[in-house]
Amino acid sequence: MKTVLEIENVHAKIGEKEILKGLNLKLEPGKVHAIMGPNGAGKSTLSKTIVGHYDVTLTGGDIRYKGKSINDMEPEERALEGIFLSFQHPVEIPGVNNAYFLRTALNAKRRHEGKEELNAAEFLRLMKSHLEMLGMKSDMISRSLNEGFSGGEKKRNEILQMLILEPEVIILDEIDSGLDIDALRAVSEGINKMKDGKRSFLVITHYSRILDYIEPDYIHVLKDGRIIKTAGPELVEQLEDKGYESIEEDSAS
């Protein structure tokens, strides 16, 4: 089995509190992994740990991306190497123009990859084509980053960034919460467009409805800081019917 991201026996704290308690997880290239789990289980903490968020202190274990440990990598390096997190609560940044921000990010990545940077006009063309697909208004170009965006607009803007940056490991933290059905469809379509048989997805969710659209290969149950079960998509139904209490822990995890 090939692995693109390997999380091995990770312990992590926020403040003085241990949140991840020996977590193991392997993401396979080209596959969609869903993580489900009760509130406060540590799902967002896991995603923050992977991208190197300042809240989280890694106290044990190893995170390897393409075979190399990224424990000591700066957040921007992890991003440049192809790891992307769509935040559960994207922050608003008044005064930073959305298009300018995105072009800066894309050009940082292109520079990193030794490619030509895009000029403003070229970038605008690219951005517009994605906006349409996501059903976003063209004023998203001129507005400040996430400022005054509705919940749905913020999530669509996260997907827009994913589409433009074309990362290789994509972590979506509750991309579906607070979305109406149209937004959910647009967001799912964006995600499906990124599937190319190589990229991996880690989809954190409470609901099965997004999984109807994006068809996961694996379901992982995260509870009390550990992955306690990994199964195929059929597990969703059991979780829907009987809840997390019904899950028996895998012996291997």
Binding site: H53, E76, F101, T104
Partner: peptide, 29 residues
């Protein structure tokens, strides 16, 4: 703002550039 700074970094923007963007945003009025 640490959160804003991190958001920009998490998109591959260097700390220097991210700080500069936030400072200009602050000065923009």
């Amino acid at each position: 703002d640490k959160k804003q700074l991190f958001y920009l970094q998490s998109r591959g923007i260097s700390v220097t550039e991210a700080r500069k963007m936030l400072v200009i945003a602050f000065a923009n009025t």
